[in-house]
């Protein structure tokens, strides 16, 4: 339950950061939340991907719905994919960035353990 709340908080924060600060900073939010959630590598990657995917995908879906797909159709023609695929591609690009940062966040949290364990002073 606690972890679910953290993930929800992560989603909201990512939205707010992307809207009000800079879209690129949405990629960096895993640096806060992955160490906090203390997941293994695979789960970190998947969750990082999923959170940013959801944020980017849902934002694109909302914009697309209020535009009744007019622009999506144009851009789809430009990049030779269908409109639904364009939405998925948007989510995937975001998710990819999120997964990469999650990997970084996971790796960064690991050296603490290594350093501390060499001193027999493991801090979890």
């Amino acid at each position: 339950m606690k972890k679910l709340l953290i993930v929800l908080f992560w989603l909201v924060l990512t939205y707010l950061v992307a809207i009000y600060v800079h879209w690129f900073l949405s990629f960096l939010t895993p640096l806060i939340f992955i160490p906090w959630l203390k997941l293994d590598l695979l789960r970190s990657l998947l969750l990082g991907f999923l959170v940013i995917f959801i944020v980017w995908f849902s934002a694109a879906v909302i914009l697309n719905l209020r535009n009744t797909g007019v622009l999506a159709e144009m851009i789809s023609g430009l990049v030779n994919v269908s409109s639904p695929l364009l939405l998925l591609a948007t989510g995937f690009i975001g998710g990819f960035g999120g997964a990469l940062t999650s990997w970084l966040a996971y790796v960064m949290s690991t050296p603490y353990k290594l350093v501390d364990s060499s001193r027999n002073d493991v801090i979890d």
Binding site: F24, N64, R66, I75
Partner: peptide, 29 residues
């Protein structure tokens, strides 16, 4: 890499992100 254009292609991140990229040009009906 995500914010740099390659050849005639736009930078993938800044173009696709829904917060300042092309999706923002999806005008309300």
């Amino acid at each position: 890499p995500i914010n740099t254009s390659s050849g005639s292609l736009p930078p993938i991140g800044s173009f696709f992100n829904p917060f300042s990229g092309f999706w923002q040009n999806a005008e309300k009906t």
